[in-house]
Simulated assay, not measured.
Amino acid sequence: MQSGYHQHLISMLFVFSSLQVYQLTEGCSCALSHPQDAFCNSDIVIRAKVVGKKLLSDGPFGTMRYTVKQMKMYKGFDKIQHVQHIYTDASESLCGVKFDINKYQYLITGRVYEGKVYTGLCNFNEGWERLSLAQKKGFNHRYQLGCNCRIKPCHYLPCFVTSKNECLWTDMLSHFGYPGYQSRHYACIQQKEGYCSWYRGMTTRDKTAINATDP
């Protein structure tokens, strides 16, 4: 009886350990987030060109250190004055992000730990030219106006806001997830008396002004 119990316990432990390995090697899984949340929840937001990389031996699969040429910093002045290196896991299955070298300018978001900037697949990292005009303006100044707001994802109807500082994010209903129309064209901005609402702010005059300047 006890021998049978031990065999059953060993079998269960084997199944559990197999599941753990499967979760580790299956791939990186991230929750969808609006670019504004990515801005507000990051320590560092920069526009930069990646000019080099080096594989470091620390970590189970190593850490990739990217050397960047910073073009502009949008957030993080109180953390680091100028970013020279970005660190990420070398394995994509552990959410490591891969950047092309000497090709594009990237919008990069990340965390600061012990003076180093870390990023990954669950952070918002995108080619600058792939961003919409509204997203560029958002990272430049609009998103910071809404960091006291809460963007509430709506996965299934009906959805409701439950407080005055919430904006209902419905991209998942009509665009099968991210990126959708609200992600690319709107910011959730705090209005009078603490109320938050979606803001596009793209009048004809605004378009002309935006096209004449580089965020």
Rank of each mutant, 00 (worst) to 15 (best):
131 L>H: 02
4 G>Q: 14
36 Q>E: 07
97 V>M: 09
8 H>G: 11
85 H>Q: 05
166 E>C: 06
9 L>K: 15
29 S>H: 09
178 Y>D: 09
94 L>N: 09
106 Y>G: 05
101 I>K: 01
113 Y>M: 09
179 P>M: 10
49 K>T: 12
134 A>C: 08
74 Y>R: 02
166 E>D: 04
102 N>M: 04
165 N>T: 07
138 G>I: 02
200 R>Q: 15
121 L>M: 13
37 D>H: 10
206 D>Q: 13
67 T>V: 01
132 S>E: 01
126 E>I: 15
36 Q>P: 03
164 K>D: 08
196 C>N: 01
5 Y>V: 12
129 E>D: 15
153 P>G: 06
118 Y>Q: 02
103 K>N: 08
26 E>L: 07
8 H>D: 15
19 L>M: 14
185 H>T: 08
100 D>T: 06
104 Y>W: 10
193 E>W: 12
49 K>F: 04
68 V>S: 01
184 R>V: 09
105 Q>H: 13
115 G>P: 05
14 F>E: 11
169 W>L: 02
23 Q>T: 02
182 Q>V: 00
176 F>E: 15
65 R>Q: 09
44 I>W: 01
133 L>R: 11
107 L>W: 01
164 K>G: 03
80 I>T: 00
31 A>Q: 15
41 N>K: 10
53 K>S: 14
203 T>M: 13
185 H>R: 11
196 C>T: 07
2 Q>T: 06
192 K>W: 11
35 P>C: 09
58 D>Y: 10
44 I>F: 05
125 N>M: 08
151 I>D: 06
67 T>H: 03
210 I>P: 04
24 L>E: 10
187 A>N: 12
84 Q>I: 01
66 Y>G: 05
195 Y>V: 14
39 F>P: 09
106 Y>F: 07
36 Q>V: 03
48 A>Q: 06
9 L>T: 14
106 Y>T: 07
94 L>I: 09
94 L>C: 04
194 G>S: 05
177 G>S: 03
137 K>V: 13
37 D>P: 05
60 P>I: 05
125 N>V: 08
126 E>A: 13
117 V>A: 06
13 L>Y: 11
154 C>K: 03
102 N>R: 02
106 Y>L: 05
60 P>S: 01
176 F>H: 15
81 Q>E: 13
150 R>C: 06
3 S>L: 14
90 A>H: 09
193 E>T: 14
41 N>T: 08
93 S>V: 08
73 M>N: 00
137 K>S: 10
38 A>R: 12
17 S>P: 00
45 V>A: 11
7 Q>I: 14
146 G>M: 07
145 L>V: 06
137 K>E: 15
167 C>S: 06
26 E>A: 04
215 P>A: 11
16 F>D: 00
169 W>R: 03
121 L>D: 08
21 V>T: 10
171 D>P: 00
106 Y>H: 00
62 G>K: 03
159 C>M: 01
31 A>V: 15
174 S>F: 15
136 K>I: 02
40 C>Q: 04
190 Q>A: 10
172 M>A: 08
168 L>W: 03
51 V>M: 00
32 L>S: 12
191 Q>F: 11
58 D>H: 00
141 H>M: 08
43 D>L: 05
121 L>N: 11
129 E>T: 15
104 Y>K: 08
87 Y>C: 03
165 N>Y: 07
